[in-house]
Amino acid sequence: MPPAPLPPLGQRPEILRMEGVNKTFRGNVVALNGMTLGVGQGDFISLLGPSGCGKSTALRLIAGLMQPTTGRIRWTEAQSQGDLGVVFQEPTLMPWATVAQNVWLPFRLRGESYASVRDRVEEVLKLVGLEKFRAAYPRELSGGMKMRVSIARAMVTRPKLILMDEPFAALDEITRFKLNNDLLEMKAAIGCTVIFVTHSVFESVFLSDRIVVMAARPGRVSAELTVDAPYPRHEDFRTSAEYAARCRAASDALHTAMELAA
């Protein structure tokens, strides 16, 4: 059952709002300064910026792994804080468990037996194209396949929100392009919202409909761009003139952000 078509940007119900969020670490290191961001249901938001701009901190705050020093993060009733999936830069799989067992983990931690969720696990493994590898151990898989398992694990519970922290940064470019394409298909298939941390301009333009450009020292939001090219986006979008123009605009915004910090 495909999800209902997305309303245009700006008309989507908000599921989460960061309001003037500050995070200061010990030694007066300001990781994040006054970040305000509304996340609409179905958005694909990229947090784009140089290292030290607080993009990973923002993600960890949303994930509930940290508390803001000041400001707050409001969740709407439709979205509870626990209902999210996470993908880290490393695949972060349990090496002692098979692919299927790794994907089962979110359900298992809720106390659901494998038998009761087998269909869901199979379905999501098919979605990431690894249904033949359900009994394999992570060490038998390539880097790209491990990342697919990680994505499958994040999606298996069909969370409304998926947080991704530079998930493809360690992969080679061919694998990264392929995973970019597949990620968009998977997102459309389960109809979730994605917040995606990256330092790649090209990746952010290809994937997202909103790009939040961040600056460092202190970490803060410097600009927001929208990419209103329609989905589904395919490989030909990568070579289009529109894509090139968007990339230039995002690149300029990133440069401005980096000059701010300098």
Binding site: A63, G64, G82, L84, V86, F88, M94, L105, L109
Partner: peptide, 17 residues
């Protein structure tokens, strides 16, 4: 692995789990 530890926290794992 500290990421796995974070993941367990996000999914609300109990100390026993």
């Amino acid at each position: 692995d500290h990421n796995l530890r974070d993941l367990f926290r996000i999914y609300g794992a109990s100390r026993w789990q």
